[in-house]
Write a protein that binds this DNA or RNA. Structure first.
Length: 645
RNA sequence: GGGGUAGUAGUUAAGUUGGUUAUAACGCCGGCCUGUCACGCCGGAGGCCGCGGGUUCGAGUCCCGUCUACCCCGCCA
């Protein structure tokens, strides 16, 4: 081994060799991906991170020409005894053994393999060194495997040898490098913020870290660098970025992990447009570096389109519309009011509440919206009912009122067919553009519920119609800024809570409404959406302590309370805070979209399961009582036996 | 916290109405093979049917519970 590592340095990676390397002596290191023993002739597919090269063990082979670039004097490139020994050793090698190979590159002639980058050549082995044996791998290491993800995660170090994951992690590297390079070139400083920090209530649940030095007290793992990056602005660093791990102790999804990485940015003396320009430049740089798509062709003016939050909710039913396809929702509340319900009892009830002032048009208590399943979708009645059943999981969802539109515009297969007035039916058909054969899906209820149901229905139908793939980008890249959502949200008890967080600046025209009509106050907040996935979000912050106090008051947070929770930030804002704003881009999600991966787990080296468990290492785990008492803790967990107790 | 799907050999799956010794492919082990490249041919080993209980003459199959993973709602930027 010493001879190989010390004297025979690697000359190439396994993906490097090409036809014009023929005749050259080379040294490769790697893993034996496959072995084909023909009896008297053995082939290895030798694999390293750059690719695969075929290595041949042929005891009868003799070089027909002097070898170029011999390695070392007095150490001939071809020694028949050594070649024979290498062949005998190759007979015993198994897949995934780690080996070094010395040999001569030869053109494969008629045996060339066109689907392999190195397929024109092979290495005739003159020497073989086995660095390590390997147990038979628990999972197949082929590019496409059907192993259960549970098994793959348990043997993550094997799974990571597979080409898709090798590619995904390399893409992460390229993404990160491009982001660093671009943001640095734009004058942003890469500064670090604390990971263990002060617990702040509200927002995402924090992971709690007990303090050994402060008995009974706890740190929290940062759910984001939000407060600290604002303090950087207060301190005059002007423009900051960080590629930073964040931690949230919430339930997980395919696009949600307990620890994840953000490209975090904050800037001073900027407005919304300035943030957009920087992020658009960043995204362009990342796409160029990773070769994911030619964005300058798709967005010639190098800007992404913008849509107000309200328009997004109205047309698509959510704040992260997948704009790769149309099939928009139809807002019918006004029409229903105009027709006083049009004979449909459910809608008459809604119309009368608007008429008697129970509901306000500006902030409606209930809405009526529709989605049209085009005849072209060719969905059977059963399939439509199947889709509707899928909406049942949305809490508060009461079901759809469906109507199949006939040749003459009449409705059938509908609970409303008999009661709806002709004029209202015609008006509805016209407003929704419903054509004969289409299925009109009507939903009445609280805006959040109606929108949740219809936006899900829209995506389901889009997928069923093949307008978007079940996962991946499908070759389309639709970016969108969704801007200016409401600052406050009804808390259901006559008060208000912050829709996102309390440090977002209300739009200038709405400052007066903070006290008088909070529900209508919009703010300088923005989300970047790609193909219906929320890539990131940010805001222009509230840098004015006076306005901040008014916002807190509307939220029912007293000065003393605010001081206790956010004291250092409020103090800092009073110490001379510049106008500032920023954004955080979900790096994992971006990597997922760029790579076409179906889940975040495929672009994170060592992900957790939906239960937050690392199947490979077994984290989280019990700790010894002594370790607990050192941090002044005792577990109250009753279920399960603690083997260390 | 709630809903859904799945769990059988190392891996992926089949297993009919509850009925003899639980199948197959890949992988693994042994043998043969000098141009393979998903090499081929011959032979072989390999099972707590997730776990625990129940029904039954008899359970992979039916019932109850439980664990694990995945997808979704709630939650979450």
């Amino acid at each position: 081994m010493a001879r190989f590592i010390d004297e025979l340095r690697r000359t190439h990676y396994c993906g490097d060799l090409r036809a014009d390397d023929a005749g050259r002596e080379v040294v490769l290191y790697g893993w034996v991906a496959r072995r084909r023993d023909l009896g008297g002739l053995i082939f290895f597919d030798l694999r390293d991170r750059e690719g695969i090269t075929q290595v041949v063990f042929d005891p009868g082979f003799r070089p027909d020409a002097p070898v170029r670039e011999p390695l070392g004097e007095g150490d001939p490139a071809w020694d028949e005894d050594r070649v024979a020994a290498a062949y005998r050793q190759a007979e015993r090698v198994r897949r995934e053994w780690v080996v070094g190979v010395r040999g001569i590159v030869r053109h494969r002639g008629g045996n060339a393999k066109s689907d392999l980058a190195t397929g024109d050549v092979e290495v005739m082995a003159s020497e073989l060194e086995v660095f390590n044996r390997a147990e038979t791998p628990a999972i197949s290491l082929e590019e496409v495997i059907d192993s259960d993800e549970e098994t793959r995660l348990r043997y993550r170090y094997l799974d990571l040898r597979r080409l898709p994951l090798q590619r995904a992690l390399r893409l992460r590297h390229e993404l990160n490098q491009a982001a660093r390079h671009y943001l640095s070139s734009q004058g942003a400083l890469e500064l670090e913020t604390p990971i263990i920090c002060k617990y702040t209530p509200g927002g995402a649940r924090n992971f709690i870290v007990p303090s050994r030095l402060s008995p009974g007290k706890f740190y929290a793992l940062a759910e984001s660098p939000q407060l600290f990056k604002q303090l950087f602005m207060v301190s005059g660093f002007d423009k900051y970025f960080q590629i930073v791990k964040c931690f949230r102790d919430e339930d997980l999804r395919l696009d949600r992990q307990p620890e994840f990485t953000q490209i975090d940015i904050e800037m001073s003396f900027v407005n919304q447009d300035d943030v957009f320009r920087l992020v658009e430049g960043l995204v362009f740089a990342i796409f160029e570096a990773t070769g994911a798509a030619d964005l300058p062709t798709l967005y010639p003016d190098r800007c992404f389109p913008r849509m107000s939050f309200q328009e997004s909710e109205r047309r698509f039913g959510n704040d992260k519309p997948d704009t790769r396809f149309a099939l928009e929702l139809h807002e019918l509340t006004d029409l229903v009011i105009e027709h006083e319900g049009g004979g449909i009892p459910l809608m008459e009830a809604v119309a009368s509440k608007f008429a008697n002032g129970s509901y306000r048009r500006e902030v409606p208590g209930e809405v009526v919206k529709a989605f049209v399943i085009p005849a072209a979708a060719k969905l059977s009645r059963k399939q439509v009912e199947e889709l509707e059943k899928g909406l049942k999981e949305i809490s508060g969802f009461a079901g759809l009122g469906r109507a199949k539109v006939g040749e003459d515009g009449t409705w059938s297969q509908s609970p409303f067919a008999k009661v709806v007035t002709d004029t209202f039916r015609s008006a509805l058909n016209a407003a929704t553009g419903a054509e004969p054969g289409d299925v009109l899906c009507l939903s009445v209820g609280k805006p959040a519920v109606v929108n949740a149901a219809l936006s899900k229905l829209r995506l389901d139908v889009g997928r069923k119609m093949g307008l978007i793939p079940a996962s991946g980008h499908g070759g389309k890249w639709e970016f969108l800024w969704v801007v200016n959502p409401p600052l406050f949200e009804d808390d259901g008890e006559g008060g208000f809570v912050a829709a996102h967080h309390a440090f977002t600046r209300p739009i200038d025209d709405h400052l007066d409404l903070v006290e008088t009509d909070p529900a209508r106050v919009l703010c300088y907040r923005y989300d970047l959406v790609l193909n219906g996935v929320e890539l990131g979000g940010g805001s222009i912050r509230l840098h004015d302590p006076e306005v901040q106090r008014r916002v807190f008051r509307t939220l029912g947070i007293e000065d003393a309370q605010a001081q206790a929770q956010f004291g250092f930030l409020l103090d800092a804002l009073r110490s001379g805070a510049p106008p500032h704003g920023g954004i955080a881009i979900g790096m994992d999600r971006l990597a997922m979209l760029l790579s076409g991966a179906a889940t975040l787990r495929d672009v994170i080296p060592f992900p957790k399961t939906n239960q937050g468990i690392d199947l490979m290492s077994g984290a989280p785990d019990h700790v010894l009582p002594a370790q607990l008492s050192e941090v002044y803790l005792r577990s109250t967990a009753s279920e399960g036996s603690d083997p260390t107790a």
